[in-house]
Amino acid sequence: MSESVLNPNESLAIIQKVVNSTRQDYHIQRKFYILWGMLIAVASFSQYAILNQILSLPWFSPWILFPGIGLILSVFWGSSSKNSSLSYYNHFVLTMWFTLYIAMGLSLFISLFNQISPFPFLLICVGIGTSISGFLMKNRLFVLCGIIFGLGAIYCVYLPIQQQLLLNGACMIIGNVMPNLISHHV
């Protein structure tokens, strides 16, 4: 089989073309963001309903049920797609979110141990992840959403726990679910 041999200009053109096409390859699956944003929002609203005696369930039940659903679906989706191509960008983002989830878990434990609200810390963690994703994608919407989470975290400090739940749910929908639904650049 005869092969065409490249000259240096052609070689450089091929390398540039490939690098330029993969630079825009930000196809982290939006369904994970949408799923977790929705579940955390629903869990927050459910706990609000429980605390206001609209629902008669143990106060912690939404935080077991909805993250449990999220975990099962994430493992299922993750295992079914782990053998596809994985760019270094996607690998970095997945690792970052995994680390942030650990940080959120630790924040939750420390907050409950000290009997303080975990929501400001959780909002900060989600805000950091969203902002970094936005900076990497050069997507201003995601950077803005990260800032919204940060502002939400500060505002949380001035609210009673029940209103913090509503604020947490609203931040998840505005800062996480909506940008992933409307953005085509993820």
Binding site: S4, L6, I14, V18, T22, S85, L86, S87
Partner: peptide, 16 residues
Amino acid sequence: NSPIRLAVMSILLTVK
């Protein structure tokens, strides 16, 4: 120094 192999190597450099 062949188009397909160079393209493949360039792609592989950008992915895990």
